[in-house]
Amino acid sequence: MPEIMIAKTVDKKKFADLAKAIVSRGYRLYGPVRNGGEVTLGEVGEEPEFDFDYRNFKMSPKEFFLPQSEVLCRFCRGELAEDAAPAPQKRVLLGLRPCDARAIWLLDKVFLEEPEDFYYKQKRENTVVISVACANPATTCFCTSVGGGPAAAEGSDILLFDLGEAFLLEAVSERGEEFLNQFSKMTKDATKKQVAQKKKIAEEAASRMEKLPLDGVAERLAKAFDSDLWEAPSQKCLGCGICTYFCPTCYCFDVTDETLRENGRRVRTWDSCMYSPFTLHASGHNPRPSQKERVRQRFMHKFSYAVDNSGQLFCVGCGRCIVNCPVNIDLREVIAP
């Protein structure tokens, strides 16, 4: 975890003013937006209300870096017409949970590895991520089992703690420090007491979380490749792919061309390893012909292959796949010994 750089506080009553100042500095500010019973990350209006009492956003914020549908380039009469790279827009994403920020940190390992993904990098470099430490993890949360924590810093630029009367803002990256310094007139240095209070919040939340026995999971699953471990979940699985759409670290995409008369665009869209055409060869051969191979691929990718390639589990323990699976496949039961 990065060392603490600076810690500031701002009174809750003055937080809306800080938000306005952020917008007036040219940032587009995205924060929690209530939509019926759900909370999503959306552009914040003139009179933002900031309470961070939700468990997590319905959808993961990966779409801010890897949109569900994104134009790669446009063409006209079969020739490249324009670079589709839009002018970079400075953004602040406020209110992510640390698990989702960790997911961005994991996506960096794929998209910022050479050759860098031009579209992802542009968005990543122009975005300040402010995560809110969790005081009340859900029963389906298991971040502490997969390398994260309710106040872990990976992927965030700033961590926000709710101290009751005030919010504590802790810069955890250089980008976060530079950002906070722009608003130093509106914040106060955190006192020792406040820093102690924030530590307590994080520790208490972590202590309440269930710890899954995942030591050595990569080797264990690699050995179980041909075992019957995959039978039960794949027999239940409908192949709907909802787990991959909700997952903050699932990043597989398709690239397709769309045309209307002589004009067209090349678009990348989220894809899913749960679908049979994902690996279907032009010859008709499919290396993953049944749902068993596809379910196995998803778990193996996250808990074994990713560890081999980047040293990290590609799961952040957000629990969205557990909550949203229509046939109640619980990832924790599949990967636990």
Partner: peptide
Amino acid sequence: LEMRMKCGIGKCGRCNIGN
């Protein structure tokens, strides 16, 4: 070897054999 591919640069996630 051959495999179904899209990006060709190790990002889109579909042509893996193991890791």
